[in-house]
Design a protein around this nucleic acid. Structure first.
Length: 709
RNA sequence: GGGCGGCUAGCUCAGCUGGUUAGAGCGUCUCGUUUACACCGAGAAGGUCGGGGGUUCGAACCCCUCGCCGCCCA
């Protein structure tokens, strides 16, 4: 047994931590009994020699062949012990001979069993030397005894050397004390038998690990499982349901009454029984959690409704301790695996990747982070980083970024409020007519779909990415900007429609974001609640948005994409040519399809506001001094006249031409490859042809502009 | 020794079943008194996707191999 001398209890293999420590190899000489020489053994634990009952050598080790069967006289103790042949002795290690202490080493125990060696226990429960050792050692702590054994060997002239080594020493995971292999009777669970159906449940998909690869960890342990020691010599815990009769006969039963009944049957009369004083391993009790909390063994309604549970969320560090054991117990006692899905999340580390620990002082207290950045920011950060990797490096700048995100949303909501964007009773998003509103409706649909799908797939990081982008980069950056000229304009119908649409989008945003950032969304929900809210009450009780396919609007999408491209490219031009921010040059469109022209005309106000231009005109050729660019296939020019310096403009054009040329080169090469044409799917080939044509058209335009300059 | 995971921009990370101009946030640089927001806005720079082979018309992604880093079990 693994014995923890600090808590004086047995512990299971899983509760033993192997720690690498600096130690020594002591080479001890054991004289042969016939006086013909000595045999040297090396050990990291000299004190255990007090319990040695043999010396083992490898059967094929030529050095010791003639010694097998002889005896050595154990120094200090004076006991003669045999030299035996066993494969366990490694000729490569040390002298090739190894001392055997069956009562205090797991490997030696096996050797002892094979050779029927006596097992001499030399330690008491507190790991002090007991009465099986020479008088001088009795009552000594094991580490004191070690010093004394070494000193005595030295005094006897039998110490043959000391080496310094690093080696693994077992420690109790709770006590931190060095664990002793110790002979004691304990209760075991036949884990192998319980594991078989628990393995099958995961193999068959009855229970699914998410991320999936964690099932490998589970299988690895379950398939190599060892008997589980479940008795503990502790005060607190479920008491072991075993009763002893006066003759030591054991009655295992659910209750004392049943045990007595069984005893009556066995003895033919009443007997006094003594219940085992040990309690069960806390993980044994924890393994009962999925069903015992629901009233089991009674067949309660809760048990019927909540067992098996849909998803268990936990960390990979307790897959063995807890998950595996719940699986085994759940199947054993109910016939069903306790969970359909086990979601394993990463472990949080500090910004340098080190495990947080109190002694290192690198622990980030979540409550302090909440005080500093808010609970929503922390939640959003953890959710965003809950990817497939094993650990999360929590860093403040990241949390700060998501705190800013919350502020951004807050301000966007404030904008809506200031502009009277209030939910309208009976508003139907399907009925909106303005391009901007049709477009944002479609984008909201896309975002809602993506977030929903991500949550269902446990891709929580993907859900946050979608939310972040939609809210900040689409709703705030574009929709709100597009809405400004409309809301400040004269068209009352468009204003009303845009207000209602904005309110609807915001409402949808609050719902989608609520699981990740419940506080800010609930607060905003309450603040925007008073007027016309179609679904009153708390946001947390509001239904999840399920939007119809009909909200998609490819035409509006194409129109707004053109507008966005025209503005983005235009901004780039302005910035590179150092056009003064306050200047409002005209934008002249020189080449566009009919649809593009309609779209640009319809959104002239929106472009004017976001690109900060004067008027939008359509002409065959750009005026002198205008700076041309291409957006989504349409050609346009900013009339910046004397605002621009020519060298900068030439450099800009040359850069754009080079970009196009690179693309042409790459794509042309691909298309020139016969194998590509022959083997790639037709749509991929067509796509590349289209791409080449566009790039060539763009390049030609840019060259013409450069030439005119 | 066995198993698992990672190595992508200065940093932290996305990148689904092989076809994108390899993305985001932070940081950096330039510019900004645009009536929600400077916890902001606009623009820009920055990557031979750990090394080497291979499969394929085509590889960050598949296979082999080597190298680091980390975790678990011995």
């Amino acid at each position: 047994m693994n014995w923890d001398p600090h808590f004086q209890t047995a512990i299971s293999d899983l509760e033993v931590e192997q720690r690498e420590v600096e130690g020594h190899y002591w080479h001890l000489a054991y004289p042969l009994e016939d006086g013909s020489g000595e045999i040297i053994v090396a050990t990291t634990r000299p004190e255990t020699m007090l319990g040695d009952t043999a010396v083992a050598v490898h059967p094929s080790d030529e050095r010791y062949k003639t010694l097998i069967g002889k005896c050595v006289r154990l120094p200090i103790v004076g006991r003669p012990i045999p030299i035996i042949a066993d494969d366990y002795a490694d000729p490569e290690k040390g002298s090739g001979a190894v001392k055997i202490t069956p009562a205090h080493d797991f490997n030696d125990f096996k050797v002892g069993q094979r050779h029927r060696l006596p097992m001499i226990n030399i330690l008491d429960a507190a790991a002090r030397i007991n009465d099986n050792a020479p008088v001088a050692y009795r009552g000594l702590d094991r580490f004191e005894a070690r010093k004394r054994v070494v000193a005595e060997f030295e005094a006897l002239g039998l110490l043959r050397g000391i080496e310094t080594t690093r080696h693994a020493v077992p420690h109790g995971d709770r006590s931190g004390a060095v664990v002793e292999p110790w002979l004691t009777d304990q209760w075991y669970v036949d884990a192998k038998t319980l594991a078989a159906p628990a393995i099958a449940a995961v193999e068959s998909g009855e229970t699914v690990f998410e991320p999936h690869h964690w099932e490998k960890t589970y299988f690895e342990w379950m398939r190599n499982i060892e008997p589980w020691c479940v008795s503990r010599q502790l005060w607190w815990g479920h008491r072991i349901p075993a009763w002893y009769g006066p003759d030591g006969h054991i009655f295992v039963a659910e209750t004392a009454e049943e045990a007595h009944a069984a005893a009556y049957e066995y003895y033919g009369h009443d007997e006094d029984l003594r219940q085992d004083e040990d309690v069960l391993d806390t993980w044994f009790s924890s393994a009962l959690w999925p069903f015992s909390t629901l009233g089991w063994p009674a067949r309660t309604e809760d048990l019927a409704r909540f067992y098996p549970t849909h998803t268990l969320v936990t960390g990979f560090d307790i897959i063995f301790f807890w998950v595996a054991r719940m699986m085994m117990m759940g199947i054993h006692f109910t016939g069903q695996a306790p969970f359909q899905r086990v979601f394993i999340n990463a472990l949080i580390r500090d910004a340098e990747g080190a495990k947080m620990s109190k002694s290192k002082g690198n622990v980030m207290d979540p409550l302090e982070l909440v005080d500093e950045y808010g609970a929503d920011a922390l939640r959003f950060t953890l959710t965003a980083m809950s990817g497939q990797a094993r650990d999360i490096r929590l860093s403040k700048p990241r949390i700060e970024g998501y705190r800013n995100f919350g502020t951004k949303l807050w301000n966007a909501a404030r904008f809506c409020q200031m502009n009277g964007c209030v939910a309208v009773e009976g508003f139907d998003p399907a009925s909106v007519t303005h391009t901007v509103n049709r477009w944002v409706r479609g984008e909201t649909l896309k975002a809602a779909r993506e977030v929903t799908a991500a949550l269902e797939a446990c891709a929580f990081d993907a859900a946050t990415t979608t939310l972040y982008r939609f809210i900040w980069n689409l709703f705030c950056d574009w929709f709100v900007e597009f809405a400004k000229p409309i809301l400040g304009g004269e068209d009352e119908a468009a204003k009303a429609e845009t207000r209602a649409t904005a309110a609807w989008v915001l409402e949808t945003i609050l719902k989608l974001l609520h699981p990740v950032a419940p506080f800010i969304t609930e607060e905003l929900w309450a603040q925007t609640a008073p007027e016309g809210r179609p679904c009153p009450g708390l946001l947390i009780t509001a239904p999840w948005p399920e939007l119809p396919d009909a909200y998609a609007d490819p035409l509006a999408e194409a129109e707004i994409e053109l507008v966005i491209a025209a503005v983005t490219e235009g901004r780039s031009v302005r910035s590179e040519l150092n056009v003064p921010p306050g200047a409002r040059p005209d934008l002249i469109v020189t080449e566009a399809t009919e649809a593009q022209e309609r779209a640009l005309r319809a959104n002239a106000a929106v472009i004017g506001h976001t690109l900060r231009i004067g008027t939008l005109r359509f002409e065959q050729t750009p005026p002198n001094g205008a700076v041309a660019y291409v957006a989504a296939g349409a050609a346009m020019a900013l009339d910046v006249k004397n605002l621009v310096d020519l060298p900068a403009e030439r450099a800009r054009l040359a850069k754009d031409i080079a970009t196009q040329a690179l693309d042409i080169d790459r794509t042309a090469k691909k298309l020139a490859n016969v194998d590509f044409i022959g083997r790639a799917p037709p749509e991929v080939v067509a796509e590349n042809r289209e791409r080449l044509a566009t790039a060539e058209r763009n390049k030609a335009r840019l060259m013409a502009i450069l030439a005119r300059l």
